[in-house]
């Protein structure tokens, strides 16, 4: 539905100008600058820039460290978004039922939104500390049972558990709203036809939830790429042995610690293109499976 009431040539531009200026300065200009530096090399001692063509890309793509980091990024993206969406979906399906606990659960499941990823990183580093945390007694019985500082699998489990805790609220809100919007008549009609509540879960609720699931998948996948920074920086710093050195963290350390502006910008461009491709892929292939009829 469109409004389009007032006629004015300049007023709408004056009204949108503030936001467009902010977006130009801190969204479009940084993107453009990243592309600029990806094809230029910074001269030492502030001597300007030199065009080097694809030299930066050759350097970045030729390093093994980059490919390790890219592989870790993809692995993290798939598993982190997969685990958090599945958990939130199960919780939303349970909280959708009119149980005594539902109102409390609907409130408490939003709480993690108030906790910064870096804060919960600090908290879980302590709780899952192999010598001081809750698993320390098990470590005393079986030495080496749990050691996220050296065991890569344990490190990833720690990251995923923390990420699930932190990522529940947003996905939960969207999925629960979608479930609540399913008309009660469909449930009644299903019951009349003799399908029980378990059957209706598969045949009515999940198919009708696909629009929300689609939105959530697109947003969670993109968020797992950028939002992992707070967890990595507080929990693993890219370790052990560079196994959790995700691209967003590598770009940060290359740019701000190694002062490699061109290298960091080149990887930024690669990461942005990757995000754009993944989002595009989801729109072309995943959206076809979405059921918009109610």
């Amino acid at each position: 539905m469109k409004q389009e009431i007032f006629r004015s040539r300049w007023l709408p531009w004056w009204l949108s100008a503030p936001q467009l200026i902010v977006l130009f300065l801190f969204f479009y200009l940084p993107i453009a600058l990243a592309f600029f530096w990806a094809f230029h090399l910074e001269q030492p001692f502030g001597g300007g820039s030199e065009f080097v063509g694809l030299e930066n890309f050759r350097r970045v793509l030729g390093s093994g460290e980059f490919w390790t980091s890219a592989g870790a990024t993809l692995l993290y993206m798939i598993l982190a978004s997969g685990t958090s969406i599945t958990t939130a979906l199960i919780l939303a399906l349970a909280a959708d039922r009119a149980l005594k606990l539902s109102p409390l659960a609907r409130n408490v499941f939003i709480w993690p939104k108030a906790v910064a990823s870096a804060s919960i990183g600090v908290i879980f580093v302590f709780i899952l500390n192999p010598f001081l945390g809750i698993l320390a007694p098990l470590n005393e019985i079986w030495p080496g049972f749990w050691n996220p500082r050296t065991n890569v699998t344990h490190t990833y489990i720690m990251l995923f558990v923390t990420n699930v805790w932190n990522a529940i609220p947003f996905t939960f809100i969207i999925l629960l709203a979608g479930l609540q919007a399913i008309p009660q008549e469909l449930h009644k009609a299903g019951a009349m036809d003799g399908s029980g509540p378990w059957r209706r879960l598969w045949d009515i609720q999940l198919p009708l939830l696909t629009p929300q699931l689609f939105v959530v998948i697109v947003l969670e996948v993109a968020d797992s790429l950028s939002g992992s920074f707070g967890l990595i920086d507080t929990m693993t710093q890219g370790g052990p042995g560079g196994s959790t050195n995700l691209l967003v963290y590598k770009i940060y350390s290359d740019g701000f610690k190694a002062y490699d502006l061109s290298g960091a910008a080149t990887q930024t461009v690669i990461l942005m293109v990757l995000v754009a491709c993944i989002t595009g892929f989801q729109y072309f292939f995943l959206e076809r499976k979405v059921n918009y009829d109610r």
């Binding site: 801190f26 200009l29 600058l33 930024t268």
Partner: peptide
């Protein structure tokens, strides 16, 4: 998100 273009 801003995190992706943090350098520039």
């Amino acid at each position: 998100p801003l995190e992706l273009m943090i350098i520039t």
